[in-house]
Design a protein around this nucleic acid. Structure first.
Lengths: 294, 294
DNA sequence: GGCAAGGATAGAGTCTTCTTATCGCCACTG
DNA sequence: CAGTGGCGATAAGAAGACTCTATCCTTGCC
């Protein structure tokens, strides 16, 4: 059975064209070298060297075989190197999901930073709601998710990385838009646009309880799944909405954002990941940490 | 030190994802397999499998490494196969030289036959004079030569493969062209075109002695190195020439070929080769033999 | 809680490879 | 032309690596 040892020996002899010197450079005696080369030749079924008692020359087959051997060793190095890179998370692929509002806050900076540190890792991005992300994580379709906490499932790691105040999104023409900040109670009679609770129960409950705090229950006239849609509906004067402040980055004309007079709870965004996270995921999490700690 | 054994074991375990079954298929016990895999992991510097006491799964690095290993084994097979082909002379390259007149006789058929039997051997062709071929052979710049014998050098093998009568090449307008065959003595006064003796001493001497036999020494008015040139000079009515009959294949207008009345010596073409001929050369020589024996 | 599956560990055995010593052949040299 | 040195091949014993059997330990399952 051919072993790499045989090939290593062969290459050295081919380089030196002298069994004695080759053996020396291989830190071994000459006889076993001769023996191993013979064994290799027997295994291959053809001669590698012309041996004329006085000189050693490669046969043509030997020359070709030498070239092929070089490729083999190059491949081997490549295999080891690539394997190590993957194991360190420097090479590979990463599937990431995020709630739409994350796309307007922390995510861009995180991705930029990750891409510059580990450019060899190819990214796959999905915009999904929090509950979808949980499913995808469980199914292994994504590695990391940016969600609206809380995450109940024990099987996932989860860290809050970002918190932001809530603001009121108003149609530009709305009378309340004239004020620099809005009191909660003035929203009591307003038509509200909100998302289905299932999509982000945490944020949903925060908004509802905020309204309770203002002394009313919101009059939800329309539900929308995406934040973008909610803002569009506000622009269309269908109603008002309470949203995380990062939505301002959408810059939708016809919509203005006003802070609330009251102290609001802060809407959070968190990263989640499967606990058997790969090295690549861990490198990603480290970078998330770095970016969000600034 | 990593050996192919390690890779073979690894691939089997990766395929089975079960040390016991993998060991069975490798015709060995399970403990040494575990051990060798561990050794490989230590050598590589990263984990290949997640072992959870109950199941074995490839790490991402392991998956990548598996793919690389497949390439390595493919390369190895390739190396062995190619080496064997070369050793059998089925693959490789061959540099061939020939005297110009050989190009019009046996060579085309030989090359056609060789190319169809060993299409993987790439050919390199050179038109050289006999003495140049000897030099090139000695320097290893060509492997086989088609020459005008005799070849003195002991270091080369040499076989005559083809003999042909000599004929007279005459300008079409020449009075002798009216005869269907020419007697030697009628050429006595004619201006002769000949090549320098050095180029093909054997043929040269044959021509000279033929003239002697006709009772005269040729009146050489012009020397030319290539047969083509000689024929062109004849066409230009510079003189006449005695040439091997295969030159008829040149089909130069303005030149006619007439057999001699006398029995002429035959001009020979031979193959020469270095005695340490490679398998490819030997296969070539076999084919030369085949073709010329028909 | 007991049982079975499956990988890890320990120690003995065996096969391969390596070392030392020596031979045989060729080329160079005096 | 004989002596000498270089160099690869061969032989036998030692060392080492791999492999085997027996056993352990964790884990999943009934």
């Amino acid at each position: 059975m051919i072993e790499l040892r045989h090939l290593r020996y062969f290459m050295m002899v081919a380089e030196e064209l002298h069994f004695g010197r080759a053996a020396e450079r291989l830190h071994m005696a000459q006889p076993p070298l001769s023996q191993q080369i013979r064994q290799l030749e027997a295994e291959l079924g053809f001669q590698l060297f012309y041996r004329t008692k006085r000189s050693v020359v490669l046969t043509e087959a030997g020359q070709i075989f030498w070239g092929e051997c070089r490729k083999i060793f190059w491949q081997l190095e490549q295999a080891v190197r690539t394997g190590q890179q993957v194991s360190r998370g420097e090479l590979g692929q990463l599937a990431i999901a995020f709630v739409s509002s994350a796309a307007y806050s922390v995510l861009p900076q995180i991705l930029r930073s990750f891409r510059s540190t580990l450019p060899q890792v190819s990214l796959e991005l999905h915009e999904l709601t929090t509950d979808q992300q949980i499913r995808w994580l469980r199914e292994g379709r994504i590695d990391v998710g940016f969600v609206r906490p809380p995450i109940e499932a024990e099987e996932f790691g989860c860290t809050t990385i970002f918190q932001e105040p809530l603001v009121v999104a108003l149609p530009q023409a709305h009378t309340l838009a004239l004020q620099s900040q809005v009191a909660l109670c003035t929203l009591a009679g307003e038509p509200f646009i909100l998302f289905p609770r299932l999509l982000a129960p945490g944020l949903y409950d925060q908004i509802i309880s905020l309204c309770q705090q203002g002394g009313f229950s919101p009059n939800v006239v329309q539900e929308a799944i995406q934040m973008q849609t909610i803002i569009s509906l506000v622009a269309a004067e269908m109603g008002v909405a309470i949203v995380p402040i990062s939505l301002q980055n959408l810059q939708r004309t016809g919509v203005v954002y006003r802070p609330l007079v009251e102290v609001t709870p802060r809407a959070a965004i968190a990263v989640t990941w499967r606990k058997d996270a790969s090295a690549t995921v861990q490198r990603f999490l480290e970078i998330v940490q770095q970016v969000t700690q600034q």
